[in-house]
């Protein structure tokens, strides 16, 4: 409507369209290049998936197959029949990753709110001391953690996988960065209206953070889902085992593994991450679109 009444409306529109058409031509080149790159990114997965559908006897053959030339699900069936309780491990991985994600997102958003919105003595020192945690190689704290866990009797439980992962300074750092880039007008006016800090955080700050929370959730969930070190050290029984170490138990100690079965397990372990990513990705796009509408 405004465009129509503008004195130079026609020329402006024409120039804008010309500009977009030029970009359009470039777009095609870029998209083809992106496509080639994407195929290379995907080739290892295609090999993984198609090999998991091959009978064990043909798993190692060259040339490899990147597209499944048959649908032989016997390797997947072997996972079900085998002595290793694949479904239990699957469920454990899910519980550990889900609990970790919810707690980490929630606590780090709270901390980020304090670090970016509230003034209190020592906040810089506390924040800086959390950054130290970013630099710690996980293997280093494993032995003290082991003795702590053993002292409170949590070894070989899902808690031993969840608790150490709850200390996540990266999440606090990223949340703080995201929150600092958000406008604070709504929060300030709510405060003037007499809202409590909790209400401001819960009703205003958190809903603003949709996209970064989605992105961070993917990262936290994946990291937990793929954690190898914690179950290797803290878990003994299959009742509390998660997928990465569990799947590697399929190896013989001297490499007599059946490749198709392992790759079938790997494929299945990727699936839920794919779902989480696809859902969260849609959420990112939608929330960005909605903020665009508001503006």
């Amino acid at each position: 409507m405004t465009m129509m009444t503008h004195p130079h409306a026609d020329t402006l529109t024409a120039r804008f369209y010309r500009a977009t058409r030029v970009i359009h031509w470039r777009n095609w080149t870029v998209m083809v290049l992106l496509g080639i790159g994407a195929v290379f990114m995907l080739l290892p997965f295609m090999w993984t998936f198609s090999t998991s559908l091959r009978p064990i006897s043909e798993a190692y053959r060259l040339p490899p197959s990147f597209l499944p030339d048959r649908l032989d699900f016997s390797s997947y069936a072997r996972l079900e029949d085998g002595p290793i309780p694949f479904l239990t491990m699957y469920w454990n991985s899910f519980v550990v990753a889900a609990v970790t994600t919810v707690v980490v997102i929630f606590t780090s958003a709270m901390a980020a709110f304090a670090f970016s919105r509230l003034r209190f003595p020592g906040s810089n020192v506390l924040f800086a001391s959390m950054l130290v945690g970013l630099m710690v190689p996980p293997a280093l704290v494993l032995i003290p953690l082991f003795f702590g866990m053993a002292a409170v009797g949590l070894i070989d439980t899902l808690w031993s996988l969840i608790l150490p992962a709850l200390a996540n300074p990266l999440a606090v750092l990223m949340m703080r960065e995201f929150m600092r880039s958000q406008p604070r007008e709504y929060e300030e006016s709510a405060f003037v209206d007499g809202a409590s800090y909790w209400t401001i955080f819960w009703r205003i700050s958190l809903p603003q953070m949709g996209p970064p929370i989605a992105a961070l959730s993917i990262i936290v969930f994946t990291t937990s889902w793929n954690n190898f070190l914690l179950p290797l050290v803290f878990v003994r029984s299959f009742e509390a085992m998660t997928l990465p170490v569990g799947i590697l138990s399929l190896f013989g100690s001297y490499g007599a593994e059946e490749l198709s079965v392992i790759l079938a397990a790997v494929t299945l372990s990727i699936l839920p991450l794919l779902v989480v990513f696809l859902i969260a990705q849609r959420f990112i796009v939608e929330s960005i679109a909605s903020t665009g509408v508001k503006k």
Binding site: F106, T107, S108, M110, A111, F113, A114, F115, L118, S123, L126, M130, L163, L166, A167, N168, V172, Y197, F201
Partner: peptide, 8 residues
């Protein structure tokens, strides 16, 4: 607000 994350 910092307490939970920092305690962990």
């Amino acid at each position: 607000f910092i307490l939970p994350a920092y305690a962990l």
